[in-house]
Design a binder for these strands. Structure first.
Lengths: 349, 349
DNA sequence: GTTTCCTGTGTGACCGTGAACAGTGAACCG
DNA sequence: CGGTTCACTGTTCACGGTCACACAGGAAAC
């Protein structure tokens, strides 16, 4: 029984077939009440006689009524939409976080609007943000862990409830993050405790919050042990870059252990070493970061730091909803990562 | 110069500070024209005196006017939004496709609304679809390559321009796909041409379009060579399942080659073989599917079939926009995959 | 018995935009 | 020179909801 199907051309005298869908007044007429009463039913107004409510509900059912969100949004200036600003939606981390955000948002009755940042230019940023603002999103979640983005966000006059992920400092008033420093320290300490002293760090690209935080964690932990932490090489998150860096590290006197800022680059490193006949972990230990689902099947299975992206996504929505005045139980701002020890690390030979 | 910043409490006599943002009539008043003229400027109406247009544009600039989309959407019943229905947003394929969709949509001035399917139940499907419909998306892209979804889509009265990805047959009137059968045949033929005759296929889960299509391609090619194609084991796309299947395959008399329905499961397979001391490709050849960016750094680098997800995403939007009456140059419905030969395959010893 | 309050409902205005229609004046035409 | 056409602009209404307010009638309070 399709609503939109054309009724057979009806005999004269009947009102012409309505092509547009039923509105609140149609329902009102069908239920024999005023449109305002229908509105009250929709919005769960308390003082309504139960019989009236039921009559209206029946009419709504019969007419297949669905409230028009544009109209409601026009008058209430609430859209029921949350905007998400993403840069690299393809990576595992952001993708997982987004999935969790969407699921949590939809549970709360919100729809997620996504705008992808095509570049880090301010114009691209303004454009994407403007698009979301035009569509009247009620709040904003920023999954753009480049410092450039955060800086633009800070100085732009965005009057919008907002949550940023991977924010640079806990002092930030709308930041939410996995404690990258703690994670990096976990990874570094693991290598140190195994007895490694010659440790290199393959960092993520400049300008990414995670890169810097993990570098900071690496440095802090090394310093705690009285060791030099200047052996830092910069990659771009891809396994390709890890591969190239691995080759370079082998050219000179290689370290006995490497802490890679993500799992992909660790994979590339292992590939480079394998190509030269070196064995992991016998010849070199490697720790990754993220715990991508594949990491446990790398050759060898990768020791890494797990970030709970799902949890992060859920908390994003929770914090945003709190700002929007929706009652939800609030969660801590920081998610603590966890070291997963597998077979890519061992004591130096 | 923040628009929303509170002006200093102004002296009496001035009109009270307007908290809401400027609307079309405010602009009209400022420019000394009617609101309709402003509307015409916004919509690029042809017959407008240039001086008038400029005056209006200046007023819009001065008042920081942004058209209210809810109001426009109410009267035009066009929302400027495209709905995307996803099931597994975390996987590389869907994630890449989504990224391409978002970018293409935003180029065309559309915003992307995402609804994630939490289960394959019809209720979940209706709920997600209903959410998108409520928000008046103008068109729908379905990234839910389970047959259950496609079936529900087929029998549901969705009166909406729509594009489904990974559709089951070219006869479908709104389907768009990578030619999975051709890809699977490419992979299988590659193994056959290397001399393998004992070939197993690790399939994706039941009910997924890709699983079935690739099985079909495998069977077709094997049949062409007069070989039995009944050696099919079912995984769930994860490297974990590939690992388990790899162990099982080793229990009996293992095949000399395996065609895995995706790269993750191939990784799991390689892990299982490596654990038993078998070497790839000397002892067993493995072909994957997708060409995930990491595949070239697996140990050994994986021979696989590349799907151009970006292209797929772009074409989705192109086809949808065509249905929406937006002029775009149209693209073929089918994307042809490509065999990438690396080091995980060799002639049987 | 009147006043007050509360429950349940209706009336009319309004949100910001676009569409239909109307009006104005100048140019053009026969 | 009067009528027609055309470029340009204004007036009015509709879109589908919500909000502020009014109002009827019964219960409770005085």
């Amino acid at each position: 029984m399709t609503v939109n199907s054309e009724p057979t051309p009806s005999s004269a005298g009947q009102p012409p077939a309505r092509s547009r869908s039923a509105n609140i007044r149609d329902v009102a007429k069908a239920a024999g009440v005023s449109h305002q009463t229908v509105s009250r039913v929709i919005n769960g107004h308390p003082s309504l006689r139960e019989s009236t409510r039921q009559r209206v509900l029946d009419a709504m059912e019969a007419l297949q009524f669905r409230p028009n969100r544009a109209a409601r949004s026009l008058v209430t200036s609430r859209s029921g939409m949350i905007g998400v600003l993403v840069t690299n939606g393809t990576y595992f981390g952001p993708a997982s976080t987004r999935a969790a955000i969407e699921s949590a948002a939809s549970t709360a009755g919100y729809l997620v609007d996504t705008a992808t940042l095509t570049s880090l230019e301010e114009t691209a940023f303004k454009e994407a943000l403007g698009r979301l603002v035009d569509h009247a999103v009620e709040g904003l979640i920023v999954l753009a862990p480049q410092e450039a983005t955060l800086r633009q966000l800070a100085h732009l006059p965005v009057k919008l409830p907002m949550v940023t992920v991977h924010s640079t400092s806990a002092a930030d008033d709308h930041g939410l993050s996995v404690d990258q420093v703690a994670g990096a320290r976990l990874a570094t300490r693991h290598l140190l405790e195994l007895g490694h002293r010659s440790i290199a760090h393959v960092a993520g690209p400049d300008g990414w919050v995670e890169s810097n935080e993990r570098i900071r964690g690496f440095r802090t932990e090394m310093a705690n042990w009285g060791l030099d932490s200047s052996w830092i090489v910069t990659g771009d998150w891809t396994s390709d870059s890890g591969f190239r860096i691995g080759q370079d590290l082998l050219a000179a006197d290689p370290p006995t252990a490497v802490f890679s800022s993500n799992d992909q680059m660790a994979l590339g490193l292992m590939h480079a070493y394998g190509d030269r006949g070196l064995r992991v972990p016998e010849d070199i230990s490697i720790v990754g970061f993220d715990d991508v689902p594949d990491a446990r099947h790398f050759a060898p299975p990768l020791t890494t730091v797990r970030q709970d992206f799902d949890e992060l996504g859920r908390r994003c929505v929770a914090h945003l909803l709190t700002q929007l005045g929706v009652p939800v139980q609030n969660a801590p701002r920081t998610v603590v990562p966890e070291l997963i020890v597998r077979r890519s690390t061992a004591a130096p030979s």
